[in-house]
Write a protein that binds this DNA or RNA. Structure first.
Lengths: 131, 131
DNA sequence: CTAAACTCGGACCAGAACGGTCGCATATCG
DNA sequence: CGATATGCGACCGTTCTGGTCCGAGTTTAG
């Protein structure tokens, strides 16, 4: 239910690298891959997701690349995770494995929900700039 | 890197159910499965892990079953997660994917480590009794 | 205008992890 | 002694993720 996969890691290190650029400059996916030792063709995928979510912007063409679309201070870890690993949902009520008509189940659902929300809050408080 | 799988859910609901027992009473794995709609033979596995970690104790024999080994107030969610899903490790330095001799990598490692620690802290603050 | 370098997007594959099951040994109570 | 419980280890099927490949559309350089 709460999952921070490797993709999120990649995204975070990439964003951190983009942050070090001069304003106006862009960095290509391949440069990022080489510099950060990320899997060759994984980087474009991760960056594409971040781009279409509006966290970074992509510049096409020969001198293209990626750069932050916002201030690093305004990009939270939670947002990156949500984009790359999806909104983490609770297992219990998602698949119907634990049926919700059971009292015990719904007794447990809300607390787990709170738990989850609290974790995301922690992630929300940390920005790329703080990494 | 942080992963709360379904097993953890199962463990948490089971512990919550065990908490409702009268002191001295025990509840069999099958009873728990039926009452909580958990997968038939998943429950013993989860309970076995919790037992060997000392969170609950098992009573063998005909009238056997499981019961809490400690007060519900003293069992944290973090502990349950750690037992059932293992100590969550950081991806970057675990598999050598991001080599640690790279400065960028080790710049990112510690902050991610802190992040992770903070999340576990949140889980530590919530006990079974509070669910 | 052509060529090169880049992003975009989808299709694709292998491997690991997870959820779930079975069976046998062992211990307890009646 | 027999019935019933856990303990534990071996065992699959499926899903998901990480990772790769390729074609299409775009922009700049020459």
């Amino acid at each position: 239910m709460i999952r921070l996969s490797r993709k999120s890691d990649y995204g975070l290190v990439a964003l951190k690298a983009l942050r070090a650029l001069q304003p106006g400059d862009a960095m290509s996916a391949r440069e990022l891959s080489l510099q950060l030792d990320l899997p060759t063709d994984m980087t474009p995928k991760v960056l594409a997701k971040l781009a279409q979510a509006g966290l970074i912007e992509s510049l096409m063409g020969k001198t293209g690349g990626y750069r932050l679309a916002r201030l690093a201070e305004d990009i939270s870890v939670a947002e990156v995770v949500r984009v790359l690993d999806g909104e983490p949902g609770l297992a219990p009520c998602r698949e119907g494995i634990l049926e919700c008509h059971r009292i015990e189940t719904c007794d447990i659902k809300h607390p787990l929900d709170n738990l989850h929300r609290e974790v995301m809050l922690v992630l929300s408080r940390m920005s790329i700039a703080q990494l």
